[in-house]
Design a binder for these strands. Structure first.
Lengths: 241, 241
DNA sequence: GCAAAAACGTACGTTACCGAACAGACCCTC
DNA sequence: GAGGGTCTGTTCGGTAACGTACGTTTTTGC
């Protein structure tokens, strides 16, 4: 019918919808490009659309008074940008920025609210996703306090890797440093360590993961906790083929 | 009719319910004592009840593999312990522990799920609360990374103070240290600083806040951000008289 | 009333990360 | 193919918080 269908369902939430809902949604979704650095929403501003990334990755971050950003969570093809729409607050104190360029589908906020209010299946999948997102945020809080930069770097690379295809991340150390809330030099050190350990290879804004299992071993437990919770709440049996 | 009514509505969520719902809920709620240190739920375990604290404060925390705890958020008379029930996950990887003894009301998880599914008013208030909780978690993550122990201590004292009556907190420095994920000695130092600045007075497990405004000035912005978001999402006009 | 436990105080070496400054390497453009 | 911007590497002093150890004071319990 429409050609967007197969592509859009690379987003896990869209893929988890029952067929009747999905058919209806095809008229509501619109493919959009998501360029690196694009701001999807600003603190306190009501969103006009929500976004279902397919290949892009979006960072939710809080920008402090002194201008320093701190990442709260990351959203990719497993989720939706704009949970505050159906949670009822319309906006949040945080900001959403595209961290890895790609594509996604957007839907008018009002349309999503209507769907949320009328379809139990929609409500169910969105709320379960939100709970998984809560776990990610919680674990970020714990990780920020307790784990070393090296461990956090591994966690972050893995979270990004899970939301991309292939084994290559296109992002500078500067960007990673901003997300983790550390100095760029710290990331250089950490990345050097990982490269020397043979886990990654990198050059100017490109990181290739050579040994994923090694990264997982070197990461703190936070990554596994979050991953497990996503899998539990949004089992892959619900997801795209 | 029942005597529990006025007391229970010291919980903001219960106070925000429309009258018809509230009448129905009186048969579903049960007053319970919440002793210091009591575990309200454990990671991965399905909750049999949800809890609406009235005078108690509960910490949500994640216990790391090495046994060290890290606080994720705090819940008092403004909220509910057990959001995973209506979010659909039934459990979480975190643990909930009573941090300040008091009372609350509990309700069977199934009853809450039924109410959530049938009453839009219930759904609305619970989801808005959950969004506020998300903000608290987010800000905890940011704060853990960027702010000094002193600032975090102020934030934490204020968050606790808001959930209590009076100006006295009954809690040891050891407990606070566990919540903040820092050393007990660090809290001693911070508390000494605050006492010397004339903001608090304390003796063995009792902290009296002398200058609330001073604490707010000394705190990082995180406290204000969270407070503002709670006020926005659950305006006091909805709350108890 | 005395021992034991609980809570708080202090001190010292260690460490991870910061801030700042600068140097080299790569890349694009003109 | 020169030059300017971007990205990464390295260094060095500074510092906040850590781990550990041990004291002191207050409370509790027999």
């Amino acid at each position: 019918m429409t050609e967007i269908a197969p592509d859009a369902r690379r987003n896990d939430l869209l893929a988890a919808l029952p067929e009747d809902v999905w058919l209806r949604w095809q008229g509501l979704l619109e493919r959009t490009e998501m360029d690196l650095g694009r701001v999807m929403y600003e603190p306190g501003v009501t969103l006009s659309h929500v976004y279902f990334p397919t290949t892009a990755i979006v960072s939710l971050l809080y920008v402090m008074e002194n201008g320093a950003p701190g990442e709260i969570a990351v959203v990719g093809n497993e989720g939706i940008v704009g949970v505050s729409i159906f949670m009822g607050g319309e906006s949040t104190p945080s900001r959403a920025v595209v961290q890895s360029a790609g594509y996604g589908y957007r839907m008018k906020s009002q349309a999503l609210k209507d769907e949320f209010a009328t379809s139990v299946a929609v409500l169910r999948v969105l709320l379960r996703y939100t709970q998984a997102l809560i776990t990610q945020m919680s674990q970020t809080a714990v990780c920020n306090r307790h784990h070393s930069l090296d461990q956090q770097l591994c966690r972050w690379l893995l979270l990004s890797l899970d939301r991309l295809e292939g084994d290559e991340l296109v992002m500078t150390q500067e960007l990673i440093a901003n997300m983790l809330g550390v100095r760029r030099e710290g990331v250089t050190e950490g990345a050097t360590n990982l490269q020397e350990a043979g886990l990654i290879r990198y050059t100017r804004g490109r990181i290739t993961v050579l040994d994923r299992a090694g990264l997982e071993r070197r990461s703190c437990e936070c990554y596994a906790v979050v991953k497990k919770e996503y899998d539990r709440l949004l089992p892959s049996s619900q997801r795209a083929a």
